[in-house]
Amino acid sequence: MNPFRRSPFVITATVLVYFFLYAPIVGLILYSFNASRANVTFEGFIPSFSERVVMDGSLVKSSPCGLFHWYCDLAKNDDVIEAAGNTLTIAFTATIIATVIGTMAAISLQRYDFKIKPFSQLSLYIPIVIPEIVMGIGALTLFSQFFGWVNDAFNLSGDARLSLGMTTVTVSHIAFMVPFVTLVVQARLQGFDKSYEEAAMDLGANEWTTFRRVTFPMILPGVLSGALLAFTLSLDDFVITFFTNGPGSTTLPIYVYGLLRRIITPQVNALSTVWILIVFTAVLLLQVIQSREQKQH
């Protein structure tokens, strides 16, 4: 056995890492069952079920949902439902488009030599390293300038006027996701031997069939990890969305931020808990799929 595995240092470090990773999450979940409406101190669980909500000052004494009072509260909140819908719509649309663009970019960067290739490669890192707020402001400036120009040029009025909304958020998300997808897929392509493609063509497959039947299945794990990364980045993006959203395109992070500015009720915790649960299930599912794939190979 590895002698380092039992050393006190390793054990302490492990415990500390897990503590700082998971203590906030555990706390957050715990507080979603808080009886107190002002969610600063834990005032105990909501004690009992009853026909209606009974409040004692800022304490919830009983509720039809009992312990899950804040979850019921959440479910009745149409704004949350809408924000969740927006978030998922944006994340799905942007992920699909960014994955296609990013994968194509990765393949052409690996396969072809062209004059501006070093520049193209470098330009991938720029959106990753520059502060998100700069990208956000940049996107906002671009959109308002462009929209102003179009609106004036075509004399658009009323609903026809271009304005910030779902589309601008989605486009901005695609813009910051593409480099991530490209880099992840590129890493997968590094070890890709072109003789697989040559073998396929040798056996009678044309370029498209070769891509569909051989290249794509072989890089699929890379494409999926890229897409998953992009998806999670989109789900919890705040800064860029903050600058580019408009009426009717509020996403969950923006909505939560709005709530926090008024009063922090355990409803926020309930929302976060549901969110964590969904993400956790998705990741677990992915793990299962991947390990099953590996066993087959």
Binding site: D193, S195, Y196, E198, A199, A200, V214, M218, H297
Partner: peptide, 8 residues
């Protein structure tokens, strides 16, 4: 092919 290039 020398590397066989079998589709994995």
């Amino acid at each position: 092919f020398q590397s066989y290039a079998l589709f994995q």
